[in-house]
């Protein structure tokens, strides 16, 4: 078993803020836009270091998306920053027409995604965004798992020509990956090799999946764990290779079961290699106020839920070692 540890918990959004500074220092065409959430998005340092390249648009997200599309026409690489619900649902048509259909080089950077936004409640807990964004032709969808990976992802998407949706979160979570780790958009990362079942996790759920993997190991079950940080384009080869080896799969995401990683994987498997599959996700429900950890527990997004899903899928595969 690979051992993953961390020395501190950090939010993914601060990884975004640092990544944005990294790319802005490298490339003078990088510009930032924010809709009255500069502090929340950790864009303050960028706005101070590059005031001429930072555009505060006020609480007007539709306008922000249009401005971002327009900035690309002069060769700029705009990074828009606001919460995930204001980054997607509120501005879907603007993204669809001015950014995705027009194939503009806009990076839509969405913080406070999922239910771990916490106390603000369901109005702000966006759990449908992966689905909305991955449906759009031309759009790539990236969901890093921790602070360091979010920084790497921010750097990586700056180098991609075309629209990208980058999804990250508010709470402090284990920062267990290294800035020296490889990161390539569209290439899933093997976290743990195994032989009995495949766990495909994205975002905050990667850490939970690793904990579940340990518990499965204690039960004599060998879980292979992949960090699917890019939902689109999906690393189909890595997923199919793993499921070909293990014969069953669990997906884990802080998102609705509809539209997100689970649907993405189910479609791939149904087309190429049908296999028993269990889903750890939000089950067609809105969230509510609460602390992030309380919400993860109530909505079934903890390591224990991944573990249970693993045991279920093993049963379906016809092997039960419990």
């Amino acid at each position: 078993m690979k051992e993953y540890t961390y020395t501190e918990k950090k939010d993914t959004r601060s990884g975004f803020g640092l990544g944005l500074l990294d790319v802005a220092r490298q490339n003078p065409n990088v510009v930032g836009l924010c809709a009255d959430l500069t502090g929340s998005l950790n864009m303050t340092a960028f706005s101070k270091e590059f005031p001429a390249r930072f555009f505060q648009v006020g609480i007007a997200e539709a306008n922000m998306m249009g401005i971002a599309a327009g900035l690309t026409i002069g060769g700029k690489i705009p990074f828009t920053g606001t919460f995930a619900n204001f980054s997607t649902g509120r501005v879907y048509d603007q993204i669809r027409q001015s950014i995705a259909y027009s194939n503009k080089n806009v990076k839509i950077c969405a913080s406070h995604a999922g239910i771990t936004l916490g106390e603000d409640g369901a109005t702000h807990q966006m759990t449908e965004d992966i689905g909305m964004m991955r449906m759009l032709p031309n759009m790539q969808v990236v969901v890093p798992c921790d602070h360091n990976q979010c920084r790497l992802a921010t750097r990586a998407i700056a180098a991609i020509e075309g629209p990208v949706y980058l999804r990250f979160g508010r709470p402090k979570v284990p920062n267990f990956t290294s800035l020296d780790d490889p990161f390539e958009v569209g290439k899933a990362i093997m976290m743990q090799e195994g032989s009995d079942l495949t766990i495909l996790a994205t975002g905050h759920m990667v850490w939970e999946a690793l904990q579940a993997g340990k518990q499965l190991h204690e039960k004599g079950i060998s879980a292979e764990i992949l960090n699917v940080h890019t939902i689109k384009p999906l690393d189909e080869k890595a997923v199919l290779q793993s499921v070909d080896k293990t014969g069953c799969v669990v997906t884990a995401e802080e998102h609705q079961a509809h539209g997100g990683l689970a649907d993405t994987i189910a479609q791939l498997l149904a087309r190429h290699a049908p296999a028993p599959m269990e889903v750890v996700a939000i089950n067609d429900s809105f969230g509510e106020s609460g602390k992030p950890a309380e919400l993860m527990k109530k909505y079934g997004l903890e390591a224990s839920n991944v573990l249970e899903a693993g045991l279920r899928v093993m049963k379906r595969k016809g092997i039960n070692r419990r």
Binding site: F55, A62, N63, M64, M65, G66, I67, A68, A69, G70, L71, T72, I73, G74, P78, Q94, S98
Partner: peptide, 8 residues
């Protein structure tokens, strides 16, 4: 909005 961005 797009024109604003292009002007910026």
């Amino acid at each position: 909005s797009v024109a604003c961005g292009a002007a910026l």
